[in-house]
């Protein structure tokens, strides 16, 4: 089976494991069981009616913004464990919003490459909107808010905001400027994804930033055999994330999709669990 088809099947399966309660879209009710205290590895709003688990970025902000707590050891430990084992494979295989972006990219619009310095914006968003604002921008009681979810996250608007507005008319009374802003962000992200592969992952996703930082040391890694490589450049041409696998197999933008491995005519690249050096 072709790598791209196998990956799409795994992504689809991951989507339904993350969001199994599809019937809740009709009622607009949320799952309220104990599983919601556990995080999924990918970006998936916990206010989505179909969700069984919590979004790690939402959970991180929920703890940081609680009065008296300034950091979430629980969520940070979870993200560190997932990142050390899998790196950004989570983005390539397990994230429901990643699948959504890839489907959008199939829309026949002119395709553009992102300006490379923009890839660093997601690190600023991680530090400012996920870690600092929920801690520092507090009310009289000392409690903050989920700044990334509130002002940026398009997954929340798509998976939770729009379905809940459709299913529960009482929410429509709360419509205002904030929702208009979030809808604008969602529309811009959708257009961006149609024109640039995984626009949101590259530019804005704080989860991608965390896993990207761990990509170089993750146990599941892209390994290059310098002896076998003939520097034909086919791997770089095949990479949808714009990475040069020969120049940097541990690149922060690599989502472990395996397109470069499939494109290599000399089997110089492989994806595997290993603690060895990424270049041999």
């Amino acid at each position: 089976m072709r790598q791209s088809i196998r990956r799409k099947l795994i992504q689809t399966l991951a989507f339904f494991i993350t969001n199994p309660r599809l019937g809740n879209f009709l009622s607009g009710r949320l799952y309220k069981g104990e599983w919601k205290s556990l995080c999924v590895p990918g970006l998936n709003c916990y206010s989505c009616p179909a969700a069984t688990f919590a979004c790690p970025i939402g959970a991180l902000q929920a703890v940081i913004s609680s009065a008296g707590l300034w950091f979430s050891y629980y969520v940070a430990g979870f993200l560190l464990a997932v990142g050390v084992v899998w790196g950004r494979l989570v983005c390539g295989f397990l994230c429901p919003f990643g699948l959504f972006q890839e489907l959008l990219h199939k829309v026949p619009l002119p395709k553009r490459k992102l300006w490379a310095p923009l890839l660093y914006v997601k690190y600023v968003i991680l530090i400012v909107f996920v870690l600092l604002l929920p801690l520092l921008w507090t009310d009289f009681s000392g409690a903050g808010g989920p700044a990334f979810c509130e002002y940026i996250c398009p997954a929340g608007t798509l998976e939770a905001g729009l379905p809940l507005l459709a299913a529960r008319p009482e929410f429509r009374q709360a419509l205002g400027g904030l929702f208009a802003w979030k809808l604008l962000v969602l529309v811009l992200v959708i257009i961006g994804c149609m024109m640039s592969y995984r626009f949101f992952c590259k530019l804005l996703c704080p989860l991608g930033a965390i896993y990207g930082l761990l990509n170089r040391i993750s146990l599941y890694r892209l390994q290059l055999s310098r002896e076998a490589c003939v520097a034909c450049g086919k791997c770089q041409s095949a990479c949808p994330m714009g990475v040069n696998p020969v120049g940097n197999p541990g690149a922060a933008e690599c989502i472990r999709c395996g397109e470069c491995v499939a494109a290599c005519p000399r089997q110089a690249l492989s994806l595997r669990f290993s603690a060895d050096d990424i270049c041999k």
Binding site: K36, C45, Y46, S47, A54, G58, P146, C149, G161, L175
Partner: peptide, 15 residues
């Protein structure tokens, strides 16, 4: 996390 995730997060969905 559980307390936050079992309720509709109005900020998260833009409301």
């Amino acid at each position: 996390v559980l307390r936050k995730a079992v309720r509709v997060c109005m900020e998260c969905i833009g409301l």
